[in-house]
């Protein structure tokens, strides 16, 4: 167990390293270190409302390991939809998402779930902590899913809560926490299984200016200290200074990319 952890790749519970097969094909193929860790290719998403709304139109986006990407745009521009496509929360109408060489289209629902369990962390605008559980239990939940031992879970939970400065409030229910505190717990939860990439959807949207800035700084710290890859969606342009790359979206299209090699 411990040597696996050292590689930063936790063992998937009961399923080993397999993410499932679809149509009998191996889903992971040809990933080389140094390639983009997460690739969205020609992503399109249509919603069947009324005459049909196209939320994302042929967006292509490569995320390099250790990168901090900010996706900026007005509300309704499709940035949240893009994020849920990248995280496998929703299936695209067209295009392909590839995480470390694994094509989402070849994964079944449970395969996607297992992928999210180990390789993708989420932070939401409304925090989405489970109200039935305490802060610590919320952070521990993803680790329970992959079958870590209780001691390991305990150690890592403390480490993460310490890192986000929430250790002393570990046993509080989310209802007893302020918005900023909740979002910090949510960030700790997203990082629980050391995912390949953390996707944050308007993480500051429900926070005041000060708390919002603190959360972004927290992300940046994880990015800098742990080489954690982040894709953050926001409509607040002031956070651009923290990003390696800023992707501007409008009307479901990428209209401009600032910074970085791409």
């Amino acid at each position: 167990m411990s040597d696996r952890l050292a590689t930063g790749r936790p063992a998937a519970r009961g399923h080993g390293e397999s993410y499932g097969y679809l149509k009998g094909k191996r889903v992971s193929e040809g990933y080389q270190p140094g390639d983009p860790i997460l690739r969205g290719i020609n992503l399109t998403k249509k919603f069947l409302v009324g005459d049909g709304v196209v939320a994302v139109r042929e967006v292509t986006l490569d995320v390099m390991p250790g990168e901090f990407i900010l996706v900026i745009g007005p509300s309704g521009c499709g940035k949240s939809t893009l994020l849920s496509l990248l995280g496998g929360l929703d299936r695209p109408t067209g295009g392909e998402v590839i995480l470390e060489g694994r094509k989402y289209s070849r994964l079944d629902e449970n395969g996607l779930a297992r992928l999210r369990r180990t390789s993708v962390g989420f932070v939401f605008q409304f925090f989405n902590l489970l109200g039935d559980l305490t802060a610590a239990e919320n952070v521990a939940l993803p680790m329970r899913l992959i079958g870590l031992t209780d001691e390991e879970i305990h150690r890592r939970t403390e480490d993460l809560l310490g890192a986000v400065g929430m250790l002393e409030r570990a046993n509080h229910s989310p209802y007893e926490l302020s918005g900023g505190e909740q979002q910090r717990v949510a960030a700790a939860r997203a990082l629980a299984n050391q995912p390949k990439v953390v996707l944050a959807d308007e993480p500051t949207g429900n926070l005041d200016r000060k708390n919002g800035l603190e959360v972004i700084k927290l992300f940046k710290r994880f990015n800098a200290e742990r080489r954690q890859t982040f894709v953050v969606v926001t409509h607040d342009r002031t956070f651009a200074e923290f990003a390696d790359r800023v992707v501007h979206m409008e009307d479901g299209r990428v209209i401009k990319v600032e910074g970085g090699a791409a």
Binding site: L89, N110, A113, R116, N128, L130, L145
Partner: peptide, 16 residues
Amino acid sequence: KRPLGVLKALGFDNDD
């Protein structure tokens, strides 16, 4: 629905 969605997002599969 929302907590169930969170669980799904965290990687709970359908059988879980």
